[in-house]
Amino acid sequence: MYVPSHFAVPADRQAALLSGGGFAHLVTPTAEGLRSTPLPLLFDAGRNALLGHVARNNPHWRDLPDAESLAILTGPDAYVSPGFYASKREHGRVVPTWNYEVLHVHGRLVAHDDVEWLRTLVTRLTDAHEALRDEPWQVTDAPEKFIDGQLRAIVGLELVISRVEGKAKLSQNRPEADQEGVIAGLSATGEPGDAAVATTMRWARADA
Score class of each variant (00 low, 15 high):
T140A: 15
L132G: 14
V197W: 05
W117R: 13
A198M: 04
P10Y: 11
H60M: 15
T126G: 12
L157P: 05
L50I: 01
V27L: 11
P136E: 03
A49I: 11
S5L: 10
L64Y: 06
R163F: 01
H6G: 07
N99Q: 08
S187G: 12
D148N: 14
Y100E: 07
T200P: 00
A24N: 00
N57T: 09
V115H: 15
F84S: 06
V54M: 04
L39T: 01
N58R: 10
H112I: 07
P136K: 05
S187Q: 04
G92T: 03
A16E: 11
A184Q: 08
V182D: 10
S81I: 10
H104L: 13
D12I: 07
T189H: 05
V9A: 12
P65A: 08
E32V: 09
H129G: 09
G75P: 05
D134C: 00
S187T: 06
A45M: 01
G75M: 10
P175V: 10
G166I: 07
Y85N: 14
G20E: 09
G21N: 09
L39V: 01
I183N: 02
G149S: 10
M1K: 10
K145W: 14
D12P: 06
H53K: 09
M201F: 13
I154W: 10
L186D: 10
L159M: 12
A208L: 14
L159H: 07
G22Y: 11
L64P: 04
K167G: 03
A111C: 05
A131V: 14
G33A: 03
M1G: 13
L42A: 01
R174H: 15
T74V: 07
T199N: 03
V197K: 05
T37H: 09
E130A: 12
D12K: 14
A24K: 02
G52I: 06
S36W: 05
H112G: 12
G22K: 12
E165D: 15
L64M: 08
L50P: 06
I161H: 00
A31T: 04
G75C: 12
R205K: 15
E68W: 09
K167N: 02
D207F: 02
L118E: 00
R62T: 03
N58A: 12
